[in-house]
């Protein structure tokens, strides 16, 4: 047979195969970093200062953006569902929908996206820069484990801060929804809040918190792992940041779906 036709096919397979293997390797590395930070959480008391610092940074960096994002998410939710509910003269129920969707899904989801973009990317950049300027090597030479020193405090900080930001987002989203309900759907505030509080469920809250907690661990592990894998100078740091954001977004969507399916998936009892 003519080798001219074989070669591109062969090369395609080689390319795809190589990238699948590299992808698996990177996924394995992220898991390794995660398990190492679980192990090094034994140092959590020794490193509380760094953890508090990272929590503070995460809070400050995300405060403004998550305020705006969740406020508008609540407004959009109220508007979209309100228009449909109005067709049935049921617009008074808009509060039910806003609080349900915010606690179960949009609160954790928008907070995760905001923290990925603002905090996760900064983690990848910071650690990536340390990696390419030999600072990580220097730590290893001083018998300081980079996961204990850098990664674990960030993972712990984000796993605490993401639920906190989520609660804040739910509140902001509900307020955003209230304003739309009042001015565009003509639902008075007291009616709106009555429905909000009436519908607020313990299960929705703890599933939302659990989601946020898992997202926090995932985003920080992914970002730190990508940072630690950075190479080739400043360009490599840029690539690490980009891939950390892409992987985090994808994982938030995928894992978010499965957690929802796990807790709410059984429609028929």
């Amino acid at each position: 047979m003519n080798m001219k036709f074989i070669k591109p096919i062969y090369e395609t397979f080689e390319y795809v195969g190589k990238n699948i293997l590299l992808g698996l390797y990177d996924a394995g590395y992220i898991l390794l970093i995660f398990f190492q930070s679980v192990y090094f959480s034994k140092d959590v008391f020794r490193r509380w200062r760094e953890i508090v610092k990272q929590m503070y940074i995460a809070g400050v960096k995300s405060f403004l953006v998550s305020s705006i994002v969740s406020f508008f998410t609540g407004m959009v939710l109220a508007l979209q569902t309100g228009i449909e509910l109005m067709a049935f003269q049921q617009e008074a129920l808009v509060g039910d929908l806003v609080i349900t969707v915010m606690t179960r899904e949009m609160g954790p989801f928008t907070s995760a996206l905001v923290l990925t973009a603002s905090v996760g990317s900064a983690m990848a950049a910071e650690i990536g820069t340390m990696k390419v300027s030999e600072e990580i090597d220097a730590l290893e030479m001083m018998a300081i484990h980079p996961v204990s020193f850098l990664v674990m405090p960030r993972v712990v900080a984000l796993s605490i801060m993401l639920p906190v930001v989520t609660i804040y987002s739910v509140v902001m989203g509900t307020v955003g929804g209230a304003i739309v309900a009042n001015f565009q759907l003509l639902v008075p505030y007291d009616v709106y809040y009555y429905h909000v509080l009436d519908t607020l469920r313990f299960k929705a809250t703890y599933v939302g918190m659990l989601k946020s907690y898992i997202f926090g661990i995932m985003i920080s592990s992914i970002s730190c792992a990508r940072g630690l894998q950075a190479k080739n100078g400043a360009i490599g740091v840029g690539q690490a940041v980009r891939s950390s954001v892409v992987i985090s977004f994808l994982m938030v969507l995928i894992v978010g779906y499965f957690i929802t399916a796990l807790f709410y998936g059984k429609v028929h009892d």
Partner: peptide
């Protein structure tokens, strides 16, 4: 082995923060 060893990196490699 590294406990008895120190390296002065070309760029210094001080922790930047």
């Amino acid at each position: 082995l590294r406990e008895k060893m120190g390296i002065v990196f070309q760029s210094g490699a001080l922790i930047n923060w």
